[in-house]
Amino acid sequence: LALLRHQASVGGVNIVAQWLQQTRGLRAGYIQMSVDVLVVLTAFAVVPPERVLQSVVGAVAIGAILTLNHRPGRYLGV
């Protein structure tokens, strides 16, 4: 969250999502979520379902922590 607000990235899909948001007006969060869902669905083809579900639970837990600790205006990229 802090990286996106400062228009920074760790690479990968993040860069493409930010570029699409800036040039096309698409929301970076939706793009990132779409790619994440595709990765998880693809994982079902190569990883045991229990492991994929464990990964999803972990991602939801991290998302919940970020959501609970987020404060509007905390990470202003000025």
Results as ranks from 00 to 15, higher is better:
Arg27Glu: 12
Val78Phe: 06
Val35Leu: 01
Ala43Met: 13
Leu4Trp: 04
Gly77Thr: 01
Gln18Ala: 10
Tyr30Pro: 05
Phe44Lys: 00
Ser55Arg: 01
Val78Ile: 11
Gln32His: 10
Gly29Ala: 11
Ser34Asn: 04
Met33Glu: 11
Phe44Thr: 01
Thr42Met: 12
Leu53Phe: 14
Met33Asp: 09
Ala64Gln: 13
Val40Pro: 02
Ile65Ala: 15
Arg24Phe: 08
Val52Met: 08
Val10Gly: 14
Arg24Thr: 09
Arg24Ser: 07
Ile31Val: 15
Val10Asp: 06
Pro48Val: 04
Met33Ala: 15
Arg74Glu: 11
Gln54His: 08
Asp36Asn: 13
Val46Asp: 01
Val16Thr: 05
Leu53Cys: 07
Tyr30Gly: 15
Tyr75Lys: 02
Val57Cys: 08
Arg5Ser: 15
Val16Gly: 06
Val39Asn: 04
Ile65Met: 14
Gln21Val: 01
Asn69Met: 11
Val52Gly: 09
Pro49Trp: 11
Thr42Pro: 03
Arg51Ala: 15
Gln32Lys: 08
Arg74Ala: 10
Ala45Arg: 13
Leu3Gly: 09
His6Ile: 03
Ala64Asp: 08
Val52Ala: 05
Ala45Pro: 00
Ala2Arg: 04
Ser55Phe: 02
Arg71Leu: 09
Pro48Leu: 04
Gly58Tyr: 04
Met33Arg: 15
Leu26Glu: 07
Ala17Leu: 15
Gly12Lys: 11
Gly77Met: 08
Gly11Asn: 03
Gln32Ser: 05
Gly63Glu: 05
Trp19His: 04
Val46Phe: 13
Pro72Lys: 07
Thr42Trp: 12
Gln22Gly: 07
Thr23Gly: 02
Ala61Cys: 08
Asn14Pro: 01
Gln7Tyr: 01
Ile31Tyr: 08
Ser9Glu: 11
His6Thr: 06
Leu76Thr: 10
Leu4Asp: 10
Leu1Trp: 09
Phe44Ile: 02
Val37Pro: 04
Glu50Pro: 06
Arg51Gln: 15
Val35Thr: 04
Arg51Ser: 15
Leu68Pro: 00
Ala28Pro: 04
Leu3Ile: 00
Gly25Tyr: 00
Thr23Pro: 00
Ser55Lys: 06
Arg27Gly: 08
Gln18Tyr: 02
Val40Ser: 03
Val57Ala: 10
Arg24Ile: 06
Ile15Asn: 08
Asn69Ala: 14
